[in-house]
Amino acid sequence: MNDLLLPARGLLFDNDGVLVDSEAGVVRAWTRWAVENDLDPVEVMLAVPGRRAADTVALFTAAHAVPAAVDRITRLELDDVAGTAAVPGVLELVPQLDGVPWAVVTSGVRELAGARLTAAGVPLPGVLVTAEDVTAGKPHPEPYLTGAARLDLPPADLVVLEDSPSGVAAGLAAGCAVLGIGELALQTAATAVVRDLTGVRWTGAGLLLPAAGLLRA
């Protein structure tokens, strides 16, 4: 397998699982919330990846209880950001994007997204699209269409970087090429899939993916 170039004029990054590794904190917070509400933590965790907290909570609670539940989950996650780390390759790639249009498009709320990026040492983007900015979360394309609009670029000129099936579906539905991150993305129709961002480079014409990190081209 050879190195692969994904042509692009700009990039749209998911946050958790793409830029930052927050999995341990996410599992602890959602497990605690599930136990507090007499729910099966395994069942709840299966519903979490790639969704806004409000959309996940709505699967398990009455509509009137959703806002309070989201506040509780957000507080539990904010209290557990200290161990958040950058995904391998991120701290090498992001500095290459000076002058390149890029944004973070996350299902998380703004306060939590910023806290995790800061804890991981990842520079905050000029454009950050969060749960508060959209009416429909992933897998709906609205989050990535919003990111494209804020970068003032057509979706076809952007590469989305995603790890979850719902996020990949959102990026593809928005009309972007999608780079899948991690083995879970192999279950999706992502344009290409890499293990992580180790060795991934911005060339000026797009993202160059090293053959060593490619899981699917």
Rank of each mutant, 00 (worst) to 15 (best):
G108N: 14
V194F: 07
A86L: 11
V129A: 00
E132N: 00
G199V: 01
D98N: 11
P165E: 05
G121S: 07
A189R: 11
R195L: 13
T106Y: 02
E77N: 13
L97P: 07
L208V: 11
D157V: 12
T84M: 14
A156D: 15
G89C: 06
P139R: 04
I73T: 12
L151T: 00
T198N: 03
V193E: 00
L93H: 12
G89L: 10
V193P: 10
Q96P: 03
I181L: 14
A113F: 05
A192C: 01
R75G: 12
L76T: 04
E92L: 13
T203V: 08
I181K: 11
V100I: 08
L128H: 00
P165K: 01
R72C: 04
L76H: 13
A174H: 01
E111R: 14
G199W: 07
I73H: 13
A136D: 14
P155F: 00
P139T: 02
P88M: 05
V127S: 04
I73P: 06
L207I: 03
D196E: 08
D196K: 10
L184T: 15
T74F: 10
T191P: 06
G114D: 09
L186A: 05
V159M: 13
A131Q: 04
L78K: 09
R116T: 02
C176R: 05
T84D: 10
A190W: 07
L151V: 00
G182I: 09
T130H: 03
P139F: 02
T188D: 05
L186G: 01
E111F: 07
E142S: 00
P123R: 09
D98W: 12
G199Y: 01
L184V: 15
G83N: 03
A156W: 12
L158P: 04
A82C: 07
A136H: 15
G147K: 02
G182S: 04
V160F: 08
V87W: 14
D196G: 05
Q96T: 11
G167M: 09
L197P: 12
G83C: 06
V168G: 01
G126N: 04
V200I: 10
G121E: 08
A149D: 12
G182M: 11
P155L: 03
V134C: 14
A189Y: 04
D157K: 12
V134K: 10
A189Q: 14
P165Q: 01
T146S: 14
G99L: 10
A169M: 02
A113Q: 00
V194M: 02
G108F: 09
C176V: 00
A115G: 06
T118M: 14
E183V: 13
P154D: 06
R116G: 07
V100Y: 05
A119C: 03
G180Y: 06
L209Q: 00
D152R: 15
I73N: 12
A136P: 10
E111V: 11
H140V: 03
A113L: 02
L186M: 05
A131S: 10
E111Q: 15
A156N: 09
A205W: 09
V193F: 10
G167D: 06
E92A: 15
P125T: 00
E92R: 13
L91N: 08
L145K: 01
V104Q: 00
Q187Y: 06
A148N: 13
L91W: 08
K138N: 01
A189S: 15
L186W: 08
A169W: 02
W102G: 03
S164H: 08
